[in-house]
């Protein structure tokens, strides 16, 4: 049976936060969204990016690996669950180890919370709330074949953070020519482009939001 997962395409995100609102409705983390929508560069752009747990496969769940009390369990189909309530001691290792900035910490209740891919729904063949609510399919749920048939772009599971490459269960949608999202290399490019623009080598784009 093909593995269904989320496909995250930030280029389609319009920042409506319907995903956050839908996530907040879930009874397993009442009133709190496990999806985060962030402005990419608030000063110059209205571009936004949704973040869900990427459910890292290799290295498998860094959040779970750094947990000193084994509170973060992984299902046989690779879904990294939020912290087990009887074990979590709020040490915050998972919060700062996660390369994607996903786990949230309720320090008073001694509990880490994170997206668990709406496991109650996805384990029964339904799609997660965020994908259900997203009007632009920036968050889209399906298997790889469905993605290839229905969507444009390339589903990429590899994100590179400097020396560390991380393969995830959840995919980013990138242009066809890209096989991975190399964060540091792209940030360097951006830095270089900004420097060139400042020196007058390249035409500087006007800010989108002033």
């Amino acid at each position: 049976m093909p593995v269904k997962t989320l496909f995250v395409d930030p280029s389609r995100c319009i920042g409506c936060r319907a995903c956050e609102a839908a996530c907040r409705e879930c009874d397993s983390h009442k009133g709190e969204s496990m999806v985060m929508v962030d402005f990419v560069d608030r000063a110059t752009s209205v571009a936004t990016q949704p973040t869900v747990c990427m459910h890292c496969e290799d290295p498998v769940a860094p959040c779970a690996q750094v947990c000193p009390v084994m509170a973060i369990l992984i299902t046989p189909d690779g879904v990294v669950q939020q912290a087990e309530t009887s074990r979590c001691i709020a040490c915050r290792n998972c919060v700062y180890a996660c390369p994607f900035g996903v786990p949230k910490m309720d320090a008073e209740a001694r509990l880490m919370k994170k997206c668990n891919l709406c496991y109650d729904r996805t384990s029964r063949g339904l799609q997660p709330w965020c994908a259900q609510a997203c009007p632009t399919q920036a968050l889209w749920y399906g298997d790889y074949e469905e993605f290839v048939n229905q969507r444009r772009g390339r589903a990429v599971r590899h994100t590179v953070f400097g020396a560390q490459e991380v393969r995830t269960r959840v995919c980013h949608v990138l242009p066809e020519e890209q096989s991975r999202l190399d964060v540091v290399a792209l940030l360097k490019e951006a830095q270089l482009a900004a420097a060139e623009a400042n020196l007058g080598f390249a035409p500087r784009e006007e800010a989108w939001v002033l």
């Binding site: 985060m36 990419v40 560069d41 919060v95 900035g101 792209l186 482009a193």
Partner: peptide, 14 residues
């Protein structure tokens, strides 16, 4: 965590 997400978003934006 927020800056980690924003860094990734900026890379994607580039």
């Amino acid at each position: 965590p927020t800056c980690k997400r924003v860094l990734r978003g900026q890379a994607y934006s580039q």
